[in-house]
């Protein structure tokens, strides 16, 4: 049976992981490679690395980091942050990323999605969608969640699928950082309306939040950052819990 995936997300700034990270057993938890290896060892199903600085000078450094990650870890990983062009994508895939995620640049120029899919295959195209509930409508936001655009979230997700995306990383901004649980509402709506996998993101605070989103929506994976980084929930504990709750996970 296909397993629901658990995905830790690492924010990268100047080649280092950001946010206070609480891994006692690591020599250097600020080193993305060390942290990635530890997550892989614990049973993470995939990893996502987001470069939050994402300037042109950093792009080369990021490719170097991706090469180091690819050399060390034995599970799939996705890289994103400020990717605008097919060349950016090509560099990261060549460096060893399995998938690349695009967000604002895909909204600005949707053909980027079909170009990526045509050149490298849909399997490596993850479109990240940041969404916020405004007056009863889930609206797409870009520029790190600062700017609303005219798209309604489910309609944009369908468009993204048609253009050739292989997966959607859906972040509810209403829930992100609240630790009050994933948005069942928009995660359910988007995963019902498209036929590609959806990664739920934003709001994870407890193990129950993961079972809730897996029970109540058709999402394929759930992503979280701080609860894993601070060691509040460990991946082996989370998976044991989900297994006990009859959610199919890789143990």
């Amino acid at each position: 049976m296909l397993k629901r995936r658990i995905i830790p997300c690492l924010d990268i700034k100047d080649g280092r992981t950001v946010k206070g990270i609480n891994f006692i057993n690591l020599r250097d938890a600020g080193d993305p490679v060390e942290l990635a290896k530890e997550y892989a060892r614990q049973g993470a199903d995939e990893l996502v690395f987001l470069d939050i600085t994402a300037t042109i000078e950093n792009r080369k450094a990021l490719a170097g980091l991706v090469e180091r990650i690819a050399a060390e870890i034995n599970i799939p990983f996705t890289v994103g942050g400020g990717i605008d062009t097919i060349e950016d994508v090509s560099i990261l895939l060549k460096a060893g990323a399995d998938k690349v995620t695009v967000n604002s640049s895909a909204v600005k120029r949707p053909e980027l999605i079909s170009e990526m899919a045509g050149e490298f295959g849909s399997q490596c195209v993850v479109v990240a969608i940041d969404t916020k509930l405004i007056d009863g409508e889930w609206i797409v936001f870009v520029n790190g969640g600062r700017t609303p655009v005219e798209y309604k979230t489910a309609a944009w997700a369908r468009r993204v699928e048609e253009l050739g995306a292989g997966e959607i990383l859906l972040t509810s901004m209403n829930n992100d950082g609240t630790r009050s649980g994933f948005s069942i509402d928009i995660t359910g709506e988007v995963s019902r309306s498209i036929n590609i996998p959806v990664i739920a993101s934003g709001g994870a605070g407890t193990m129950e939040h993961f079972s809730e989103v897996f029970f109540n929506t058709a999402c394929s994976a759930a992503l979280a950052a701080s609860i894993f980084h601070f060691g509040e929930i460990t991946i082996p504990d989370l998976k044991k819990y989900l297994h006990k709750e009859n959610i199919s996970v890789r143990l």
Partner: peptide, 13 residues
């Protein structure tokens, strides 16, 4: 056949 999510992506036994 398009009766579930495609691609088949993830861990399976």
């Amino acid at each position: 056949p398009p009766v579930d999510k495609i691609p088949h992506m993830g861990w399976n036994n």
